[in-house]
Design a protein around this nucleic acid. Sequence first.
DNA 1: ATGATGATATTGGTAAGGCCACTAAATGAC
DNA 2: GTCATTTAGTGGCCTTACCAATATCATCAT
Lengths: 247, 247
Amino acid sequence: MTIQDRLYQEIARKLIDALATGAFKVGDRLPAERELSAEYDVSRPTIREAMIALEVQGLVEVRVGSGAYVRRLPGKEDNPGFNVTAFELTEARLLFESEAAALAATQITDEELAELAQRVKDIALENQTEGGTEEADRQFHLAIAQATRNTAVYQAIEELWKLRRSSPESALLHAKARFANIKPVVDEHSAILEALRNRDPKAARSAMRTHLSSVLDSLLFATEEKAIEEARRAVAAKRDRYNRVSS
Amino acid sequence: MTIQDRLYQEIARKLIDALATGAFKVGDRLPAERELSAEYDVSRPTIREAMIALEVQGLVEVRVGSGAYVRRLPGKEDNPGFNVTAFELTEARLLFESEAAALAATQITDEELAELAQRVKDIALENQTEGGTEEADRQFHLAIAQATRNTAVYQAIEELWKLRRSSPESALLHAKARFANIKPVVDEHSAILEALRNRDPKAARSAMRTHLSSVLDSLLFATEEKAIEEARRAVAAKRDRYNRVSS
DNA sequence: ATGATGATATTGGTAAGGCCACTAAATGAC
DNA sequence: GTCATTTAGTGGCCTTACCAATATCATCAT
């Protein structure tokens, strides 16, 4: 009746304990498989199995030829999106939400149009207040995603907004960008609403592209302000390539 | 040149696919490690690694000396996305992946183009074999997402493929659709590759749209076969609206 | 006939060793 | 100084082998 506790599980527990105790920080490299093999006095395959258990749980990332690196610490619930920069997020929104807007234009109901109109007013209000949030903005865009009548589309776009929240640095950057770009935002949202009201897919797509391109530009400006030269250059390069795509 | 996609992950995906397509029921015993080793033409340690990946996810339970037993079917618990139909998924891919292809056209490297060429060959091979999987197809599309150099875009598209696998009914429908639409798939993928090779964003977007529209049509056909009238009508309506969007 | 017992086959568990591919840092050539 | 090359070090995967737990079934005592 001896339960043959699987060895790899025991090793995996020990490794997780080691992470939890703070022996390693995020980004640190774990010892090589051969070293761990000697340290815990088990074979390398067993170490590999334990490592896979950790990898499946998102705790570590294994890079071929380099080693195993800590991705997140145990106890912290998963943040699937990691090094997603504010620029990447907005670029993704530009691609996806523009298409969603086009699709929504063919499906949207009068009730949803009324809701969107209210959201536009909310956005104007938010912008007038000093420490305003971006909640109305978020709801505006999610409502459009909802109007596509496609669960997969909605979930994907919702996921992008979650990613935006998960990165503090990203949120900060967005806040600065919003500050530098207040008035146009209201007009741009109105333009999107107008296109949807006319059930015009192409116009809706175009208006959404214009809006998010504007946000992208704001991000560029904010990034320059932060004087992170490296990031600025990378972003600028990306901006150029985007212009080629959407032209 | 060979992407060191970890072999155990590939095997794990195939096993999960097998579970999703209904090859096994809850409580069933999976083939022995040695059998699976021969079946998938990999070593036993690799099978063990894949099995551990499934075990950590709670899909199977391994009993020493007896075998591995199905604990639950994939896609029930872990995915918040539930009622995502095969049509919705493909429609979302049509919207998103087309834009991703356009973006990738401006960024793709020669190495990535070579990899894509290999994937096209793999897809042809997969289609020739009887019980072929859709692994090559998946890798083709994910490679394009990767070529966008945008983590957010990649994650979103990867999420769509995960959703696809999480719904057994969806996987089944796709299998039927694939059967009814073999030859064009290879040509369509070739067309996408050619557009990317020319670094032509518009052509890439167009080729991807053509491809996924074709998949959408296959789904319609398969749905009709299943004689689910209600679903068919809903899908047909959506198809019409999509034609309006993309025109 | 029936139930207990033990031999044997099957299955997963682990170890050891080997070779390959990839990575990155040290080294050398220019 | 810059760039290409070399060289350890690393993980990826395979092969072989043996051990341990379990399942199966023939055998035997009742």
